[in-house]
Amino acid sequence: MIAKYRATAGWLLLVVLTGYAVLNLLWQNIRSYPDLPETDPVTIHEARIAQLRPLLSPSGAVGYVTTVENGEIFAAEKTFANVEFLAQYVLTQYTLAPRIVRNSPDLPLVVGNFIDGPPAPGFLEKNGLVLLRDLGDGLILYRRERKP
């Protein structure tokens, strides 16, 4: 008799707990739904970077510069100081694939992604980067004119 009640209590507990977990997850998701942006950040970034595609050859490599020095992009992420610059770089690569986006200004064509502000004064001149096309919203395509 006790064994029967024990078994019933067992599956009942299981059903209640799993039911709570499943419905709670759904409730959390439904509650967060109205706060969702109309378009997710990856899609927004992709649409912005995609403007570069017609200006680049379908394969090959391009350089990359951003608000901070190139060496800081991965270093900031490794110390968990800032993942934003790495995310911007990775999404630029994600959008422009199969072109390879090198984390360096040392290539004939260089993508400038300055959504978080301009680079340090003199950075572009130091690397010999000349504006080729300003696509707005901090997205610029540079031509590298000379070696530093």
């Binding site: 997850l25 998701n29 439904i30 739904y33 969702l36 997710d40 990856v42 899609t43």
Partner: peptide, 13 residues
């Protein structure tokens, strides 16, 4: 499935 769908809409990539 509802939770999965909302998660997809939140982060489609």
């Amino acid at each position: 499935l509802g939770s999965f769908l909302v998660a997809f809409l939140k982060e489609p990539h």
